[in-house]
Design a protein around this nucleic acid. Structure first.
Lengths: 147, 147
DNA sequence: GTAACTGCAAAATATTTGCATCCTT
DNA sequence: AAGGATGCAAATATTTTGCAGTTAC
């Protein structure tokens, strides 16, 4: 996808707000997140831009993005590390208390920004700091398709 | 910890119920889970018994245990793979719909067998298959200690 | 111009596979 | 005795680190 004038401006804004310099790799990787709104793994990103940017750069970019609150990681049962940019992150106030949905059909991981994690009653002595919820199932797109 | 007569019998029971032969490494690794009730990583197990059993054996044992429903994996945000044996697993009916608690102080991961995952209202079109909840916070033991 | 970012090489770590040998049943 | 489990060696995959060259501001 072409980086239009306004897209570039938007990317620059997000980066500059975090005191990050606007480099080609950062803009490109950030735009992947903005264009999909799904969670991405290092592997997916590497497939997408690996011929253009070094594997190491991708690792470092993801790490930087996470530190600066542009993306957050999503817990998964296998050992893949998922990164997602969410509405909240983009707006600057980084909190991950929304639900993540992993579709078992199309394999995508989707941030359900409007579904917040529930408060849970824990046994005595346990103090909750944060609650992360991952739901497996069939996503909206797949459930409306035949097959 | 010594394998007493009755402990060995218990281990054998769990293994035999899954048509698994009772080998020394399986008994030993299984006893680690029974004795801690915390979640364990491959690394922790290797530190514990790595001088006695091969790294590869530990990998294969964990994989077998998971396939046979003796342990289950717990989703984590970093890429560590956590395995836990829970009450349900031990009793034979394998379902992971309980909450996992990761203590930010002692780093242990604990199965809260009695806290079940909540039903959540999702946007139209999303079909829930399973819900996994990971809570970060301070565990019972740590919250009752000074400091 | 300077600090920060990137690419390359290589190290460190983690996981998987093949095969010969050993152990459980 | 036979099939499965283990250990060892090695292949593969993943992530990290150091450093020299390049780029953003």
């Amino acid at each position: 996808m072409m980086e239009t004038k306004s897209t570039t401006t938007r990317l620059n804004d997000i980066l500059h707000r975090r005191q990050l310099s606007s480099t080609e790799s950062r803009r490109k990787i950030l735009s992947l997140f903005l264009n999909s709104h799904d969670a991405l793994t290092h592997g997916i990103i590497e497939k997408e831009v690996g011929d253009k940017f070094d594997r190491v750069t991708i690792y470092r970019t993801l790490q930087t993005f996470e530190e600066k609150g542009i993306v957050h990681t999503i817990p998964t049962a296998d050992n893949s590390v998922l990164y997602a940019l969410c509405k909240e992150c983009e707006e600057g106030h980084h909190h991950d208390d929304h639900v993540h949905f992993i579709c078992t059909r199309c394999e995508r991981t989707i941030c359900l920004d409007d579904v917040v994690s529930p408060k849970l009653e824990l046994p005595d002595g346990y103090v909750t700091d944060s609650v992360q919820v991952v739901i497996h199932g069939i996503c909206k797109d797949c459930s409306s398709e035949p097959g």
